[in-house]
Amino acid sequence: MLGNSVLVEIKNLRTYFHLPEGTVRAVDGVDLTVRRGHTLGVVGESGCGKSVTALSLLRLVPSPGRIEGGEILFYRTVEEAGASSALTDVIDLAKLEPNGREMRSIRGNQISMVFQEPMSALIPVRTVGSQITEVITLHQKVSEAEAREIAADMLARVRLPKPRQALDDYPFQLSGGMRQRAVIAMALCCRPKLLIADEPTTALDVTTEAQILDLMRELQKEFGMAIMYITHNLGVIAEMAEMVAVMYLGKVVELTDVRTLFMSPLHPYTRALLKSIPQLTDAVTRGGKKPRLQTIEGMVPDPYSVLPGCTFHPRCPERIPDVCDRVEPGVSEVAPGHSVKCHLYSSP
């Protein structure tokens, strides 16, 4: 039952960058599950490995980086002609050749991604249209003209004004918000099963951001796709996600549904993260006297070092001496669908 609703299951994924200065364990044992048609939010401080996790999923980790271990199980539906029911087969993306035919046929087709910096996602010297139709003709058996139709249609869906004209525009002729819509259209035009959105709205103003978020939810319903939404904005998470994974230093420290996350967070890091959100009401109720924002104490340790025990212990206000700094905590499922990686909750 559950097995059928799972789309992607990441198990103990480890992606390291081998640099001359040392090894960066960008992703160090991540477990995640993305369910069909649902949204998984991924939050965490800058540098905690959110983007690298996403890139690992697409097998696009840049050069000194390598997937060292773990599984990325993709439950693919194979629509058989004539058969009424769709069959599911499982492939481990971590085992595929990164630039092999099979991986490429998945990329941009069944799993697509919207990247962090929308402004430079399109090459300035080619028209928007040619960059979109390229992905359509690559994965679908359609002519150039049909691909243009699909592209124009998709641009209309993302509510780009004058979509047909925009096909022949160059990226620098579009505004930032329009460009981001075009990029989303580009990611959606093969109707992917999973859309990875890596902070797609950070560069945009608040109004445009809200519009784009609305749009993505709408299209998600329409296409029935799953979204993996990466951000460090907890407000956006509250709005978008059903399940949330909190990452710290390459590990998922808490995984739960969005309600529980905000109502009863368990991991000390999650709690600290939630306290650091500025609250509009605070500022208002205190009569203009601005409260100090809570920050998480200490600095993120330098990425080359390997800490013994829990990686959060140097900054943790609730650390248990002689335990947290020595033994790595296991994952404990405190409630169905709510797991924490912390000694405070590990069953004895």
Partner: peptide, 23 residues
Amino acid sequence: QYVLVARAKGLSELKVLLRYPVR
């Protein structure tokens, strides 16, 4: 960024090169 985007489209490495950075 657009090189990564092009790779994420599923283009082969040669096409990525020729259609993007080389352009």
